[in-house]
Design a protein around this nucleic acid. Sequence first.
RNA 1: GCGGGAGUAGCUCAGCUGGCUAGAGCAUUAGCCUUCCAAGCUAAGGGUCGCGGGUUCGAAUCCCGUCUCCCGCUCCA
Length: 515
Amino acid sequence: MAQQEDILKRIIGHAKEYGFVFPSSEIYDGLSATYDYGPYGIELKQNIRRYWWEAMVRMHDHIVGLESAIFMHPTVWKASGHVDAFNDPLIDNKDSKKRYRADVLLEDYMEKIRGKQQKEIQKAAKRFGEAFDEATYRATNDRVIRYQEQIDDIKNKMAGYLAAGDFAALRQLIVDLEIACPISGSRNWTEVRQFNLMFSTELGSVSGEAATIYLRPETAQGSYVNFLNVQKSSRQKIPFGIAQTGKAFRNEIIARQFIFRMREFEQMELQFFVRPGTEMEWFEYWKAFRMRWHRALDLPEESYRFHDHIKLAHYANAATDIEFDFPMGFKELEGIHSRTDFDLKAHEAHSGKKLQYFDPELNESYTPYVVETAIGLDRMFLAILSAAYKEETLADGSERVVLNIPRWLAPIQIAILPLVKKDGLPEMAKNLFNTLKLDFSCQYDEKDAIGKRYRRQDAIGTPYCITIDHDSLEDGQVTLRERDGMTQQRMAIEELPAFLHDKLHLSALLSRLLD
RNA sequence: GCGGGAGUAGCUCAGCUGGCUAGAGCAUUAGCCUUCCAAGCUAAGGGUCGCGGGUUCGAAUCCCGUCUCCCGCUCCA
């Protein structure tokens, strides 16, 4: 474990040194769990995004794209459940170091009273036998009434404090009731603090008149609220999907582990709308397809696994994760959820607009079910980077650091290197460079010894180096050096475009997704 | 938020019983060399030692405060 963390550290160091990922605002000591993508990082990230997009949108004629705004109407987040479900008042016990939801502590306390009350009632029921009338007893027995008053009092106070956001009073209530931590038994509590998962800001420049709006915590809702716009404008029939990539924001209490968990991150999500009752078939289809998408990259097969959810979220009737073996262990990379009609129904209810589809085959309208695939682009980036990072000892005892990035996605795909910096070799190399850069991401480098330049390219994961030597001037052949095996072959310049296209072009990767 | 660790050059670090102009290796840049798997030669650039205060003739070094980052715990639709 310690060794694995060490590897993550070295990957982070490498990512910084070679321009993949920088800590954000570094000259101001950085901002926790926020990172910037450098020159090579952004190339890799864009290539991953493009692979996802083409594999989903272009390769499926019933999937179309969308880019919805990060800002959305505040009611969207009420409908989705984000406002209520992720607005927790939390309190810590200073002795046990355990954190609780303040409202849950109070609920538990009320439950205890209710238990006593129930006992009282049961005792009475035994005593009176058949003649026992619970309603009357509840209304007349002093002890039961007192318990009920206590419960109602706490409930009212709690609801009032929560509604008013008065956390000091909420804490005082816990203190006054002498509620103790179930673990330490201590009543040594911190302040109550609000943890809302969503970032909020204000729309409009005059703050007094402004409405509070949120930065979206997921892109999915943008696809749901545009369901009819997309379906009608692109004349889609169910089943069809809306693909979207974009930034999302979650104010995690703790965001850590490099770019694995960030407060600002990028999602690549598909919302696939299906006829109710067919959702499990589609759930299985997307499970299989998404795994095929991953497998096509040739990362180690054992680095992937499915993790089926046993405890399902409030909106789902089936859910699985694709987990990846990151340096810190298996963690969620992608989620595939059958979300039923929860979201569309919620938006119908809150907006008052119908979000239904008329199915000509069934001759009826219905609210479609949704199967969602959601992958974190930054997590995919980290998966590729951590699988690619290798420290190798070569046959001659020297060492190299190489990134075995899937060659179709490499930030620089080809380096063009004149063997020496004179005798017309740079000119010939530059000519080749100017041709190849139209189709591939290329880099020209003439500085330092050839071996050193190979190592530099290894460090950023360039799959092919093309070296021009003195013979090249005569016979028009160049040396093609391959990254992973460090093998070399001579090839005529005119053969290069076709060869490189087959090896490096995105189409070669996409074709792997076909049966 | 609690506990632990750490902040000196782009990176890895040394210096920290207070004392010359804060160093090394790698990296970078320019030049030389011309050699198909880095670390040959010459030169250059790059640091207000996280920040603030205190002690002192003098602080990277000692004291106090503070900030930030990393790890663990709590949370994670």
